[in-house]
Amino acid sequence: MTGLRKSFGRTCALDGLDLSVASGEVHGFLGPNGSGKTTTIRILLGLIRADAGTVRLLGGDPWREATTLHRRLAYVPGDVTLWPNLSGGEVIDLLGRLRGGLDDKRRAVLLERFELDPAKKSRAYSKGNRQKVALVAALASGADLLILDEPTSGLDPLMEATFRACVEEERRHGRTVLLSSHILSEVEALCDRVTIIRAGRMVETGALADLRHLARTSIRAELARPPSGLDGLAGVHDLDVVGTRVQCQVDNAVLDEVLRRLTEAGVRSLVSQPPTLEELFLRQYSDGAAP
């Protein structure tokens, strides 16, 4: 899709968004909350129509050819609501049949892996369990394209691992996955390529390896002696030294060197964190503004 625009009343949700996903790849679709991820997905599903721009999905127009295209895709919404008086198993079967049948063996395996009780009424499911119902229905469908909108929100860490393993399998079977998320680590673990959007515009796209320059680690350390030699080092940003306390952002490429110099000064405590998406955007923003 190129130059996609969509406004709701006076709020502009998409402002000339470009996004391209190659077949067979797992594509991360990153952006903070409210950046237009769900709107983009709803356009891809033909639920809403873009005001301007061109969209091709699996070689067709998602608005006009919705029903034919939907034979080849499966979708998991970000906030799954189900029919309160249908059981999870009934919902999975129904969605599978609407898509033209589902693989019973795969359904059983997935139910077991996600530890989901299919006989419970949807009303009694927690958010995570509703998410699982939609995930099992989508993963058991054997569709060419999976569109997943923040699929792990509400899943516990164990289930997140199961989910990652499942997406890994889908990739091996040559399926295409569009994975929207606001969690960088999730996308890093799963995706071949990434598109980052902000306020309805694409800010960065490419193979994850190319985006490594974005990946920095933020370090906070308490040392025995004031450190030396951090100042001039390339790849160290926002350095802040107060006595024996050090705070800085480090490009992963020079992480090793920085740690060596810190240990030379005697490390008393050390906290290191991957940068949050917001920090990334902050950087993106200031980098763009600088000449």
Binding site: S87, E90, L94, A119, K121, A124
Partner: peptide, 23 residues
């Protein structure tokens, strides 16, 4: 008592209209 659900959907629940009827 709220009845437990079925683990599998009945055979007729296979179209949007069947869903409408169920609802």
């Amino acid at each position: 008592p709220s009845r437990p659900g079925r683990p599998r959907a009945p055979g007729w629940l296979r179209s949007p209209s069947a869903l409408a009827w169920q609802l």
